[in-house]
Each structure stands twice: as C-alpha cells, then as structure tokens.
Design a protein around this nucleic acid. Structure first.
Lengths: 350, 350
DNA sequence: CTGAAAGCGCTAACAA
DNA sequence: TTGTTAGCGCTTTCAG
C-alpha cells in the first residue's frame, strides 16, 4: 500500500479510501490510485485487516471426522453458505480426542465464531465460552446440559416416519435396536425411540452397546483386522443380537444405522429368515450406499447439507445480533423407501 | 499481554520471553509471569503473531467438492498431517467455478502454502504463483503444462493391476471405457489406459463423453430429475454404450468409475448377458460402496488418505526448503477383488 | 477532500 | 537479565 501511495503521490489514507470506496475522495485521484493498484497487483492483507478490525471472516469448524459422508456433507453446506458471504472455513477434525484444544486453538486464531459437532459429555467447557459471548452453533449432537444454538435432524420425526412406514407395510411387532456405547444414551437415538414409540406403543427396546463393539474391534484390530471390511465388522458386532431378540416375537427391526441394518439383514438371512417377507429391516442414514444394497434397504435420509447451511446462517446471524436467544433447529428428514423392483426394469422396458 | 506485564511488574518483552521460553530470563520472574498469565487465562493472538512473523500456520486447501468420499478422505489426511505440526486447514470448495478467486483469497489471508486439487486446463495462473515462489502442492490431478509438486495415485499401476486381474481370471478381449468430457482426456485416465494396454496389447478403447452426459443430466434435471438416484443417472448415461461395443467381441470392461461399472453390470444383465460369467466388469475407486454391491465388484482402491498425508508433508518440507525441485509422487493403489462367496458364510460357519 | 498519527497484539533488534 | 523501540499492514479518528 505504501508503494502505491508513493507512486500515486498521495497518502496511505487516500489510497485506502480509494480502495475501500469509503469516505470522500476526488474522482480523479480515485481513478489514478485504482489504476496503479490494479497495475501493481495490489491485494489487501486480510490478516492485518482482521487484527485491526477484530473481525477476521474466519469461522472455526470442529467435526469428529470426515471420512464418512456424514460430516463431509454437512461441511459442504457450511462452506457453501460461508463462501457466499466471503467467509472462510478453518477446519479441524477432533477424532474423538482433541475437541477442546482445537476449539481453543481456533479462538487463538481469532475466528469470528464456531460451528461444532461436539462429542462432549459435559457442558462446563462450552458454558464458559458462551459466557465469554463466543458465538457458537452446535450441529448434529447437543451437548448434554448446555443451552445453546443447535441445528440437527429431527430424530423424533425420523422415528415416526420409519414406524409409520413399517406399520403401513403390515408389520406389527417392531424391535428397536439401541446401539450406543455411551453412559447416557445419545439424545438423537432417544428421540428416535420416542418418535418410534409414539406410533408403536408396543415396540421392544433392545439395549446393547453394538457401537462400542465395533469401535473396540476397530481399535484392537489394528493390522490383524478381525474383518476385511467395515460391513463385516458390523456383522461381527451384531452376532449376539439375535438371541435376546428371540425372546420377543418381533417381525421388524429398526437398526439405527444403515451399516447395522445391512448387517442385520445378512444375519437374519444366515439364519434362514427371509427379508422382508418374514422380518422387515430399516436403517437410518449414515451413508449413501443404500442405493446399492441387495435386498433394498429402506432408510431415513438426513438433511445433511441443509444442516450445514442452516448452521452457518444461524452463526452469521448471531455475529450480527449477539444477544439472540439460543434456539434448536430440528430439520425434517425424509423417508427413502427403496422399491424392490429393479430400477433397470423401469428404465429399459419402455 | 499488557495487563500481565503490569500485574507482574515487568515489561511486555519480559512477559513475552517467559511465555515463549526464548531469551534469557530470571527463573523467579519467569515463574511469576507464567502464574499470572495462567491465572488471567492468557492466550496469544495467533493472528497478530502471523502478521508479525509472516508465518501464519495456515494452509489453504482447494478441492472441487467434498460430498463424494474422494476429497473428503484426502482432506482427512491433510488435516491429520497438519494438525500434528500445529498447523490449520483453511478449506475452500471450488465447485467447478471459483478456483482462481479462491486461491487468491487464501493468499490474501496469508496462508503459508496451498494444497490444490485443480480443475484448471491451463498453467498460466499457477505459473505466475510459482514464480512468486508461493508454495503449492497439487493433488490428484496435474495441471496440464505445469511443472509443480504433485501427489496422486499411480494410475498407470492401477491400469496394470486391473488388466492383470482380468487376465488371471481368463478374460482375453478387454474394452476400456474412456468416459471423459474434456477437450483433452484427463491425464489420470490416459495413464490407466497406458498401464492397461501394457498388459493387454489388444485392448479396445471406447471413447465417449459419458461423464459429460451425467453432468448434463444432473444440471438439466434440476427438480424434474430424470432419475431418482445417481446410480440410475449413470445407467442413463451409459445406455448408448453397448452398440459401439458390440462391434468388438469384448469379454470384459474397465469402466473407470465404480458407479459406471455398476451401471454397466446392470446394463449387461438387462441384455441377458451374465456377469461375470459372460463378461467381467471392473471399476476404479471413487466411493466405498463396492462393499455392498451385488454382484460383487472388483475395483482399485486409491490411497486417498495417504495422498493427503503426503501432500501435506511435502508442502511442509517445501516451506522449509523453498528451492526444492518440483516432483511428482505417485502412490500405488491396491486391487480389491471382491470374492463372490458370501462373506457371511465364512463368518458363520466356523 | 486530504493527511497525519495512533494502535490492533505480537516479535525482533538493539540498548542498558 | 531486563527494557525500549520500532514495525508487520490495515483502519479509524481527528485535524487541516
């Protein structure tokens, strides 16, 4: 900027005024400065601007992982919404370990706000931040005991949708597979349960830490993996599920995750039970492979991109109005009932 | 920092020395300053530090999209490698449009370096940056005509692996589906072709812009989508592929992408051709749904996370040694031959 | 309409 | 061992 000022024979301030379009300035000087800046290929240093204005245009994002499609899609939505208003995403992946440290480091970098998919079990850390008026929007999971902005799927509605679908298909004795390995069940799965039970009063709840088994197998596995693929891993984790279920005359299963649903189907088939004739199985979207499974799998599609978009927008809004009361936004999911007819048939016949 | 200096009764510089652990300082003052800083919850402003040192610890990343698993996984590797050395990822998604602007904006934010999955067809823009000695590592695709660091899959090796696999399975007359919609064929697919042909001298090349069809359908589709799912879309795009192929007595097909491979399988089956008995089909990893398809699909797994890790490490190295000569690192892919036996059988029998 | 000066928070060089 | 000073590049305020 100094060089431009010198070359144009004006002060830094004038250059700034020309470039920013703010403040009174003579048309001729403005043109001259702009031309010189253009020619010199001048680009403002956003870091310096951030330091001065204490507004960086950086938004910190913390997610547990992005290898699965779940957070990748949410992230896509976040980035899109922010790019549209010329903000940038500072991305960190917590991998179940570093959440708080990462949040701190993002704040050190002077992000304007945070979007966090937290795995925290206690509200203390975030309560402190909120008291310091750090703008935060949580996504996907709520932090237990914390009153803060949240954007997530409406899991209750998802439970209702799946229950209604099963009921419409003629099933009557549903089993609900709770899969959590946490001390307190995950809120989202509890919500699904409530929704599910509001339709099926007689639903049977099978509580078992399948998810924990998968994680343990993954950890222990290391190189000597107990299974080649993740789907096989899920199969291993679910192996014990049939005996406890057998005490209940179920005719359909809500398996919480698509991977589990598929494993459950394989498991049932291995025991000579036909799907969906004898027993129906439904999942809940954590992946988009459901297009490809055999037999077709009915599932709930979560509005992932939309969650990201809404979270970003909420955060931007909060930057303008820091006193906005905290609110939870629960977005409706969509039932994806895979027709069992061959999609190809429909396409090739006509 | 000023406040801590005041409270400790020393100069800012001393506080800095205590906190940074650099320069000589009395043990007692050091302790005192550290205690006060701790108590005051002091955290250094990395933005200011960046401005002063002109080293921000920010790495700009540009990818075309992250909804598919491809770049999400690469990104995971990048983030991991950078997090390990306390650097942060500034993520942007170009969505086939804004690549150059995004790169500029990242530079405005004073990133230390860039990792770019470019869709550019011309080297001019990046050549200018490289002349300005901006550290850049490209991933996945090379920019035509540009001599720069690149980390990517060894597509030639991938082509060889698939060809050898097909040969070992007894196939003799392979068809290679080139799917590009670009003026110049994408380098990676050319490499696959070269590798493939080094094994099968008689391979037949079917050149047709299937990929372009898919994109067009996606664009035109809008709400009135011509197909419910992406897999159906691929099927539509491939419909015309069988006639040109029919002129060649092929007994197997290399379909470039898993989605196409699967669509091809369905297409063949719809025409009464059995897979893999009559015709074998192989893909090339762009997704991890191959675990779930029916019939099983043999494919090449690209070392995506590793690409990210290596790219980040290369960039970090280049930050230290700006004069490193540009180099291409091509990482070996892995053949994933899906056994057609039921994985469950293997697990449940014993 | 234009310019001078101060300062965001940190760091590096130099002086005491 | 400690302190003083200057400056990264931009923005704001106040003065001309």
């Amino acid at each position: 900027m100094d060089e431009i000022a010198r070359r144009a024979g004006v002060s830094k301030t004038t250059v700034y005024r020309a470039l920013s379009g703010q403040g009174r300035i003579g048309e001729d000087t403005r043109r001259r400065v702009l031309d010189i800046a253009e020619e010199a290929g001048y680009r403002p240093n956003r870091l310096a601007r951030g330091l001065r204005r204490s507004r960086t245009g950086l938004i910190g994002v913390v997610v547990p992982g992005i290898e699965g499609q779940f957070y990748a899609r949410v992230l896509e939505g976040i980035e899109k919404a922010l790019q549209d208003v010329d903000h940038r995403v500072l991305l960190t992946v917590s991998r179940g370990e570093q959440e708080y440290e990462l949040v701190e480091s993002l704040l050190d970098m002077q992000v304007d706000g945070l979007i966090v998919a937290s795995e925290s079990d206690s509200p203390d850390f975030y309560e402190r931040l909120l008291r310091r008026r750090v703008p935060i929007v949580f996504i996907d999971r709520e932090v237990p005991g914390l009153h803060a902005d949240l954007v997530a799927t409406d899991h209750f509605a998802g439970g209702v949708l799946l229950a209604e679908h099963l009921r419409d298909k003629g099933y009557r004795k549903p089993a609900f597979l709770s899969v959590t390995d946490r001390p307190r069940p995950i809120g989202s799965i509890e919500d699904r349960w409530c929704g599910f039970r509001s339709v099926f009063r007689n639903a049977c709840l099978l509580h078992h830490p399948f998810m924990g088994s998968v994680k343990r197998l993954l950890r222990e596995g290391g190189d000597a993996a107990p299974a080649e693929t993740f789907s096989e891993l899920c199969l291993l984790a679910l192996r014990g599920a049939l005996e406890p279920l057998a005490t209940f005359p179920y005719d359909c299963v809500f398996a919480q995750y698509d991977h589990f649903a598929l494993a459950m189907i394989h498991l049932l088939q291995a025991h000579g039970i036909r799907v969906p004739q004898d027993v129906g199985v439904v999942g809940f979207d954590d992946h988009d492979f459901t297009e490809y499974t055999e037999p077709p799998l009915t599932t709930i599609r979560q509005p992932l991109r939309e969650i990201g978009l809404q979270a970003a927008q909420r955060l931007l809004r909060r930057l303008e109005e820091p006193d906005l009361p905290a609110a939870a936004l629960r977005l409706p999911p969509r039932l994806v009932a895979r027709r069992s007819s061959d999609p190809l048939a429909a396409m090739e016949q006509p």
